[in-house]
Each structure stands twice: as structure tokens, then as C-alpha cells.
């Protein structure tokens, strides 16, 4: 498929201690200094050089189309920490055309995002999204 190999613009992000607190609290975890393991997912998403909406648009999908996350695999060779700048790069690694009863035609698009801290890789996030596709006329 045409999108495989397409990079997602690289960017960077750091989160503040209060954002770590808020994330713990939002997912039903007692806030603590050690980041919640789902924070790596946030870093991978926020550290891109484009917004979520722009990323989906580059895959021919508007937010109004209803893209959905269907699977995530997060590998954590390191740890993310507050107030550390993380660089993120991403790439589309697979696209598979599907058809479902409720969604109609859609693509299962898999993208891999790699998160690098000052001393090297700390996380890799591989997400699969269902992207609705309009029926051909």
C-alpha cells in the first residue's frame, strides 16, 4: 500500500511533573513521582512533529471520520521522566484493507514510534488504527 514507509515528522516533547500527577489521577492511579507506564504512549504521541489530527490527515483521514486505536504494543527498554526532552520519530509499517459490517471499508494502519532520550532509546510504541475509507462510487 502507498502509505507504508511514510515517515511521521519528527519532533520532541517533555512533560512536567504536574502532567505526570494529572495522568496518574486521570487513570485511577495514586499520583507519584514515578510516571505511569502509559506515559510512554503519551510521549510517543505528543513528541511527534505534527498534531494527532495532522498525522491522521497525512493518512487521508479526518478526525470526523472516526479513526480508532485498535491495538498498541509498548516496549520500554528505558524509563521516561518528567522534565526530560524526548525526541520521537515514526513511520507507517503496514496497511491492510478490510471490510466490516458496521464500519464498511477501512484500513488497518500500523505505525511504529520510537522515543529517544538524551542517552538513547527509552520506548517504542507500535499502534494499529482502524481508518474508515469511503466506499468507491
Amino acid at each position: 500500500m502507498g502509505l507504508v514507509g511514510q515517515p511521521v515528522p519528527e519532533g520532541s516533547w517533555s512533560f512536567a511533573p504536574h502532567e505526570n500527577w494529572l495522568l496518574h489521577d486521570a487513570v485511577g492511579s495514586t499520583p507519584q513521582e514515578e510516571p505511569h507506564p502509559i506515559m510512554a504512549f503519551l510521549v510517543a504521541q505528543r513528541g511527534l512533529g505534527v498534531s494527532v489530527a495532522e498525522m491522521f490527515r497525512s493518512w487521508d483521514t479526518e478526525m470526523a471520520d472516526g479513526p480508532m486505536l485498535t491495538r498498541t504494543t509498548v516496549e520500554l527498554p528505558g524509563e521516561v521522566r518528567a522534565d526530560v526532552e524526548y525526541r520521537v520519530r515514526g513511520e507507517v509499517v503496514a496497511v491492510e484493507r478490510k471490510r466490516g459490517r458496521t464500519m464498511g471499508e477501512f484500513d488497518l494502519l500500523t505505525a511504529r514510534f520510537e522515543v529517544f532520550g538524551p542517552e538513547g532509546p527509552v520506548a517504542a510504541v507500535t499502534n494499529t488504527y482502524a481508518l474508515p475509507r469511503r466506499e468507491a462510487a
Partner: peptide, 29 residues
Amino acid sequence: HGPSSIGMLLNIVRRAFPEGRIVRYDVGL
């Protein structure tokens, strides 16, 4: 949000092994 539900799912492992470090998770929504 999907990541929020995943965070809730991870809480059970964190509670069971507070001294452990999660190194990988693979979750289907």
C-alpha cells in the same frame, strides 16, 4: 480514551507487583 482504559488495565499489574517494572505491554482494544 483508549490510552486511559489501558492505563486502568495496567493498574492491576502495578498493584500486584509494586516493586516490578513494566517493560512491555501489548493490548487490543
